[in-house]
């Protein structure tokens, strides 16, 4: 119980005394990919080529998929940079990706995090994390 309270405090204090350092730097940016039964790697929710004005305006009120996508980005950054949160982030990513990919029960599932970064005048990429393979459980969806 004490550890829960201390953890909650450590999460709440930065909210009460925020740093507001939005976009201090534009660091390496994660992309989440998964594969099912040794398929090729598939980017999770590849963004569309074009989003029209009407769709942008609708998203002002209804944007749950994109907001979940931003949460996947946060989880990827936590998994890559914060060992204390790595366990929670890994599990949360795994659960959500299995659901989003609609991986069937019994299939073999894995995901990986690729980070894009600027190297002088070109965009480089590196694999930051690759999960162990798991068998998708019956109650995953």
């Amino acid at each position: 119980m004490v550890s829960v309270i201390l953890r909650l405090l450590s999460l709440y204090l930065p909210v009460l005394f925020p740093s507001w350092r939005f976009f201090k730097t534009v660091g390496p940016s994660p992309r989440v990919e998964y594969r099912i039964n040794d398929s090729d790697w598939i980017e999770c929710r590849h963004r569309p080529h074009h989003v029209g004005v009407g769709r942008m305006l609708r998203r002002m009120l209804w944007n749950p998929r994109w907001n979940e996508q931003l949460f996947l980005v946060s989880l990827s950054e936590r998994l890559a940079s914060d060992p204390d949160q790595a366990g929670h982030a890994r599990q949360e990513l795994e659960d959500r990706l299995i659901r989003l990919s609609e991986a069937p029960p019994g299939s073999i599932f894995a995901f990986r995090l690729i980070f894009l970064t600027r190297e002088e005048h070109r965009i480089g990429m590196f694999i930051e994390y690759e999960s162990p393979t798991i068998t998708v459980p019956d109650n995953a969806l």
């Binding site: 350092r21 939005f22 976009f23 201090k24 730097t25 534009v26 940016s29 994660p30 992309r31 963004r47 569309p48 080529h49 074009h50 989003v51 942008m56 998203r59 994109w66 996508q69 931003l70 980005v73 894009l116 970064t117 600027r118 965009i123």
Partner: peptide
Amino acid sequence: IKIINPAWRSGEALRDVFRFSAYPVSEGL
């Protein structure tokens, strides 16, 4: 925190946001 960063002053940081960050909602952007 932006203005003390040379990358923001030169415009390179905002280019990076559009070039490879996870935020633009479409590839066209």
